[in-house]
Structure formats: structure tokens, C-alpha cells
């Protein structure tokens, strides 16, 4: 016995099959890229060289300060341009992933800077005494310790990034929310051959979309809280 109405089953399957992978893939790409760029920028920010610090600070404040939707629209609006010999033309999907990365890397950079600066100076000195150069010190001594402190906020970043993929809705990327919207149009129109849904359809469709996000994000927020507790 399926308690859900007949019209809803194919709709929910579509959202699950088309929307969820698109959302998760985009979040994964953005988080990994944010991590790489953010850790590098955050570490560089701890070097006492003012122009570099200002430059990175500007990057961080701009991409953290702007609403992500504004960044998404901007990147998507950009006309194609050439970088060297390459003709760069981002798809809607890539534009959204890049915007999420700019935002995420700014968050990670700030977190990395904080974490690196929280490592006691003795650690730097001890590593230097062992004969490590700056890069070696950062890579083998400082960053491993700093990254451990960053794990809870990074899980938080993952949750936020998964939720923020919905912003790609605005440029037509078929993430979970867009998938729900498309099917909502289909079951409203009565011209697609799909059964026409009753008027509570949006309640069910968008409730289902919210539920999917909750199922994905709730365990992750609990995990972040647990890790945070264990660390202190």
C-alpha cells in the first residue's frame, strides 16, 4: 500500500533521480575546490607581507560579502572570453559551481588563517630547529594541526554548500529545487500527459524537496556538533 497519491510517485522519482545527484555533485566539486584554494590562500595570509595580505583580504571580503546569488548571476552573465589560447565558456552548472567555490574558498581561507595563527609559536620554532623550511614547516607541522581544528567548520561548510546549490535554480540548473519546480509545472499544465495534480500539489512537492535536504543535512550538522564537542 503506497499512501502517496498516484501522480506524485513519478514526480518524486524524477526529483530523486535527476535533482539529487546534480545537487550532490555540485556541492562536492565546490567543497573540494574551496578547500584547496582556501587552505592555500589562508596559509599565505599568515605571511607578514602587507600587499599580499591586503590582496587576499580583499578576495575574502568580497566573495564572503556578496550574496551568492549575485555572484552566480554575475558569472553566468559574463560573455565568453579567451584565456591564452583557451576559449572559456562556462555552462550554467559550471557558473554555479564556480560561484559556490569563490564563496567557499573565502570561508576556508578565513578559517585556515585563524587555525594557523592559533598554533603556538613554539611549534614553528621547533620545526625550524628540525631544519624544515617555510613550506616544509607549513606542510608537515602547522597545517596538519590546523586542519584538525578546522574539521567541524568544514563539515558546516559542506552543509551550507549543499543547501546553497539551490541558488543555481535561478539560472536553470536542474538541482533538487529546480527539479521540483519543473514537475510542479508539468502537473499543473494538464498538457503533458501526466495526471493533473490536486491543488495541494506544491505543498507536497516542496515539502518533499525540504525533506530530502533535511535527510542529507541533519546527520552532517549532528556530526559537526559532535566533532566540535570532542575537540574542546
Amino acid at each position: 500500500m503506497n499512501p502517496l497519491p498516484e501522480w506524485f510517485r513519478p514526480v518524486s522519482e524524477y526529483i530523486l533521480r535527476e535533482g539529487v545527484p546534480e545537487t550532490l555533485r555540485m556541492a562536492a566539486i565546490a567543497v573540494v575546490a574551496s578547500l584547496v584554494i582556501g587552505v592555500v590562500l589562508g596559509t599565505l595570509m599568515t605571511i607578514r607581507f602587507r600587499p599580499l595580505q591586503w590582496l587576499i583580504r580583499f578576495y575574502v571580503e568580497v566573495w564572503r560579502g556578496l550574496p551568492i546569488l549575485v555572484t552566480v548571476l554575475f558569472i553566468f552573465w559574463l560573455p565568453a572570453f579567451d584565456v591564452g589560447r583557451h576559449h572559456v565558456q562556462l555552462s550554467a552548472y559550471q557558473s554555479a559551481a564556480l560561484a559556490l567555490t569563490l564563496w567557499g574558498s573565502a570561508q576556508v581561507a578565513e578559517a585556515t588563517r585563524g587555525a594557523v595563527q592559533s598554533i603556538p609559536n613554539e611549534q614553528h620554532e621547533a620545526a625550524a630547529a628540525l631544519g624544515f623550511g617555510w613550506v616544509g614547516r607549513q606542510t608537515f607541522v602547522i597545517l596538519p594541526q590546523a586542519l584538525r581544528r578546522m574539521v567541524p567548520p568544514l563539515v558546516g561548510l559542506l552543509v551550507n554548500t549543499i543547501q546553497n546549490t539551490t541558488i543555481a535554480f535561478a539560472i536553470g540548473v536542474n538541482e533538487v529545487l529546480q527539479a521540483g519546480q519543473r514537475q510542479f509545472e508539468n502537473v499543473t499544465s494538464g498538457l503533458t500527459g501526466q495526471p493533473v495534480a490536486p491543488s495541494y500539489a506544491p505543498f507536497l512537492i516542496f515539502g518533499y524537496v525540504a525533506l530530502l535536504f533535511f535527510i542529507i543535512c541533519f546527520p552532517l550538522t549532528r556530526l559537526a556538533a559532535y566533532l566540535e564537542k570532542r575537540l574542546t
Partner: peptide, 19 residues
Amino acid sequence: RNTPILVQIFFLYYGLPVL
């Protein structure tokens, strides 16, 4: 905290009239 704000906006915008 565990659902996107955009989904919440849609839910209110489309869902509340149903109630």
C-alpha cells in the same frame, strides 16, 4: 538550519495558500 532558505521561501510562497 537543515533546509535551504530558498526551499523555505518556495514552501511559504506556494505551500501556505494551500492551507
